[in-house]
Write a protein that binds this DNA or RNA. Structure first.
Ligand SMILES: [Mn+2]
Ligand SMILES: [Mn+2]
Ligand SMILES: [Zn+2]
Ligand SMILES: [Zn+2]
Lengths: 139, 139
DNA sequence: TTGCACATTAGAATCATTCTAAATTTAGGC
DNA sequence: GCCTAAATTTAGAATGATTCTAATGTGCAA
């Protein structure tokens, strides 16, 4: 089959089931899936306009919110910078390079779970996790 | 000696050495140390005014920035809410209750370190970490 | 004590995001 | 296919946390 990471099936829409599909939501989701570099809403807007010139920034915000609330996409927050959007639903954190602002995924080690490194108080139900690192890249 | 957590020495200023001390910075730092509930800048402002009526919100922002840049205090960010401020310099994450907005410290398990649960790419130098959880508290 | 680099202040500016209200579109039932 | 109700899209205004500006005040090293 010769699979590799670039073979990712962009048309696997299982995560969109139950979400009313509109041309705009499809376009916003496709933008996120095709270049997975954690764009801001404005960057998504710029990319979406290439295929759909009439789309508005307000709609991009609305679509992103719908996708996030549906669980198809995750928001990433560094300090109080613009929110960024990530379609990777596996357990992972993020690293932002201080020079360039670039954000990359940092996978959770296989088998690692929250309780292994955090002393969670009894009786808490965790619904969302953000693990965000910032720093420099050597080279 | 009969020590417990409430005996914390609020006058240990070792973390402030090298920072030019002003009445306002002292007051802002004291506000954070005396009630460690992760207040926002506006909440710090309200509390600081009790002891120092003339202090301005701009100054509170300036003092908080100076303390953060000096490493005496940490910023905590949930989504795009107002930044919150934490004087606990031990390794820990934060949990925010979705109902009340309350933020509590979540200690890192003793001996746990980043590399134990994250697959960090080679050559990254991590300067800052935020581990932020949101959810509900049972009872 | 003095000088001056740095800090404080009020108010304006910024800007990512949310809100508003009117026009349009979706999806289901016929 | 057509109709309807509910949801979505849109342009533009509003919001609000934070940063900036420029005038005034102060910590502190010499
Ligand atoms: Mn939401
Ligand atoms: Mn800073
Ligand atoms: Zn990601
Ligand atoms: Zn804390």
């Amino acid at each position: 089959m010769n699979h590799n990471i670039t073979d990712f099936d962009h048309s696997d829409d299982s995560k969109l089931e139950g979400l009313r599909m509109t041309r705009q939501r499809r376009e916003v989701y496709d933008v996120l899936m095709s270049l997975r570099d954690h764009p801001t809403a404005s960057e998504v807007y710029e990319r979406a306009k290439a295929n759909m010139p009439g789309i508005s920034l307000a709609t991009v915000y609305n679509c992103l919110e719908a996708l996030v609330d549906h669980g198809a996409v995750r928001q990433v927050h560094f300090e109080r910078e613009s929110s960024r959007y990530c379609p990777n639903l596996t357990a992972h954190g993020h690293f932002q390079d201080e020079q360039s602002g670039t954000v990359i995924d940092v996978p959770l080690k296989k088998g690692a779970s929250l309780g292994d490194f955090l002393d969670l108080p009894a009786g808490v139900q965790v619904n969302n996790i953000e693990i965000n690192l910032t720093g420099k890249i050597s080279n």
